[in-house]
């Protein structure tokens, strides 16, 4: 592992799903142009929202009727993977943009390295978490975190979830999992397959969780961190992407 500088941006107040996905893409674009530093963002979705993977068919991945009735926003990510319910009051999301080099060159290995930052944080909380390839972190055999990555022009963007108190009743109603997937995991429903930190250790101080996450990334990547805010330039580039994430063509492209 090399030594790198890692800029950290916290957005715990939250923004809507279109903006959060637009900011992630903007950071990848700007990083690949050499206009910004390596950046870690930890944020919330406000209001709660659903994202689906790049290759998913929206009507088969989420319960659109429930989402529309409940006023839950949804969009498609630029990353693969599955559908995710982002609970404003129960889930943190991280995103990180890094150059593809060293241990991050191999895709599978890069998932392991980056996800180990979350494993570090969870273990520091006393939770026996493990990374399960390709992109999951599990506790007691149940998923507590999922990540997804895309690569462009020598740089990667990986973003992922950490469920600390997600409302699993809503998650179960919002997301659809193929019967074949549930059977292969030996469970009857999505709810049987997931777990939150609250289920394991009770209520969690989110500020402590954030602190441990940042420490986890710093340790795992041998990174010297510094805190920053999104720049006007980053917000302007993101603002140009928001309409894509709201568009029917993008969300319903599959």
């Amino acid at each position: 592992m090399w030594f790198l500088k890692l800029r950290v941006i916290l957005d715990l107040e939250g923004r809507d799903v279109y903006w959060q996905m637009a900011i992630d893409e903007a950071l990848l674009t700007l990083r690949s142009r050499g206009e910004i530093d390596n950046t870690l963002r930890i944020y919330r979705f406000k209001p709660s929202a659903v994202t689906i993977g790049y290759f998913q068919k929206i009507r088969e991945a989420v319960n659109l009727e429930f989402l529309d009735e409940s006023g839950i926003q949804y969009t498609r990510r630029i990353t693969g993977g599955g559908s995710v319910y982002h609970d404003t009051s129960g889930e943190l999301t991280y995103s990180i943009v890094l150059p593809i080099r060293g241990v991050l060159t191999d895709v599978l290995e890069s998932y392991r390295v980056i996800c180990n930052s979350l494993v570090y944080a969870l273990r520091k909380l006393g939770v026996s978490a493990d990374f399960i390839p390709i992109n999951d972190i599990v506790v007691h055999g149940k998923k507590i975190s999922g990540s997804a990555q895309t690569r462009r022009a020598g740089f990667l963007l990986q973003h992922g979830t950490l469920m600390y108190a997600t409302d699993l009743n809503i998650l179960e109603k919002a997301l659809i999992a193929p019967r074949e997937k549930l059977e292969s995991k030996g469970v009857k429903s999505i709810r049987d397959r997931v777990i939150t930190l609250r289920d394991i250790i009770g209520e969690v101080d989110v500020n402590v969780l954030v602190e441990y996450l940042v420490e986890g990334f710093s340790n795992t990547l041998s990174a010297e961190i510094y805190y920053d805010e999104l720049s006007e330039r980053e917000l302007r580039v993101a603002s140009e992407l928001v309409s894509k994430y709201k568009s029917f063509e993008w969300v319903f492209k599959r």
């Binding site: 790049y54 290759f55 998913q56 991945a61 693969g80 895709v107 462009r152 997937k181 599959r254």
Partner: peptide, 14 residues
């Protein structure tokens, strides 16, 4: 159409 929760790099190739 090939859809699902998999990953491909680059995504456009699918």
């Amino acid at each position: 159409t090939i859809s699902g929760d998999f990953f491909a790099y680059p995504e456009e190739s699918i």
